[in-house]
Amino acid sequence: MSRAIRRTPAAKVGITVAVIALLIFALFPAYWMVSTALDGKAASRGSQLLPQSLTLKNFSTVINDGGFGHYLRNSLLVAVITVVLSAMVALLASVAVARFRFRFRTSVVVMILIVQMVPLEALVIPLFLQMRQYHALNSLLALSVVYLAFSLPFGIWMMRGFVAAVPKEIEEAAYVDGAGWWRMFFSVLLPLVAPGLVATSVFSFITAWNEFIFALTFMSDDSKYTATVGLQKFFGQNTAEWGPIMAASTLLSLPVVIFFTVVQRRLAQGLTSGAVKG
């Protein structure tokens, strides 16, 4: 018979202090970024914890003068294409690997793992030469295809686990009721693996939204820059405009936070409904 662990008041206070210290350590960079973005005197702020004056001038400078809104639209376009294509391809590929029997099935899974282990920096030059040969440089669609290739190994590997966890008897019951394969796929299998699909979408979105090296290497036209590349415009040769930099960084971080918050709720709802329906 298990007993509940009783903590002394001193232990409770120690745990509380440790949790608060951890939260401060984790959230302080975000606070410094936002407070500097809102500080009208960010250049002379130094080590002061509180902003000297609150203003939205830095955001106005970034959007109106720096054209950062255009870079955000480019990043959003690339991220949406990557998320949609990676979700579709990863789901179908995971079903093939987890359900179908074919030659070299194990080899395909091993190759997926090997591709996941390759450092992305080692692929910059080969991919640049390949894109140049196909005349695909300076194209947002081609950049989306590159990000798709990066996110697919993880997506297939994760979705394979979700598909394999679905009992085959559920699919067989759908077949007995007269459903075809596509009807079973959309009506039975897809709702059950939806939480995994959301998780892979989060990874694909973060990969496409935060990537910098390939976007900088493949894009030569200023109008095709993504937000991560456009951020460097506010860094001078000898100085840095910290107010606009932090304002642009805040705008760059908001879509990730909003997207993760939305899909996290959908993920929790999918897990709960799946548990209730049995």
Rank of each mutant, 00 (worst) to 15 (best):
I5V: 15
R7P: 05
T8V: 08
A11K: 09
G14S: 13
I15L: 14
V19Y: 04
I20T: 04
A21Q: 05
L22Q: 00
L22S: 04
L23M: 08
I24Y: 00
A26L: 07
L27F: 04
Y31V: 02
V34P: 03
V34N: 04
S35E: 01
T36I: 02
A37F: 00
D39H: 02
K41G: 03
A42E: 02
A43W: 02
A43M: 08
S44W: 02
G46V: 01
S47G: 02
Q48N: 08
L49K: 01
L50W: 08
Q52G: 01
L54D: 04
T55I: 02
L56K: 01
L56W: 01
N58K: 01
F59A: 03
V62I: 07
V62G: 01
I63T: 10
I63D: 00
G66A: 09
Y71S: 11
R73L: 14
R73E: 03
N74F: 02
L76K: 01
A90W: 00
L91W: 01
S94N: 06
V95T: 10
V95Y: 13
V95I: 14
A98P: 11
R99H: 13
F100W: 08
R101Q: 06
R103V: 04
T106W: 10
V110K: 12
V110A: 15
L113T: 07
V115E: 06
L120E: 11
A122C: 09
I125S: 12
P126A: 14
P126M: 15
L127T: 12
L127A: 05
L129P: 08
L129F: 14
Q130F: 10
Q130S: 14
R132W: 06
N138R: 11
L143Q: 10
S144D: 09
V146C: 12
V146N: 11
L148M: 10
S151C: 14
L152P: 03
L152G: 07
P153W: 05
I156R: 12
W157S: 11
M159Q: 10
R160Y: 10
F162M: 13
V163C: 09
A165P: 04
V166F: 08
P167H: 05
E169C: 05
A173L: 14
A174T: 07
Y175C: 14
D177N: 14
G178Y: 15
W181S: 15
R183V: 12
S187C: 13
V188R: 12
L190W: 10
A194D: 01
P195E: 06
L197W: 02
V198T: 05
S201A: 13
S201M: 15
W209V: 01
N210F: 04
E211L: 12
F212H: 11
F212M: 13
F214S: 11
F214L: 15
L216C: 06
L216R: 15
Y225G: 03
Y225P: 00
Q232T: 15
F235N: 13
G236N: 12
Q237G: 13
T239V: 11
T239F: 11
E241L: 06
W242V: 04
G243I: 02
M246A: 15
S249C: 07
L251K: 12
L251W: 05
L251R: 08
S253R: 05
S253L: 05
S253F: 03
L254G: 03
P255S: 04
V256W: 02
I258H: 05
F259R: 04
F260K: 03
R265V: 07
R265E: 04
A268N: 05
Q269C: 00
L271W: 06
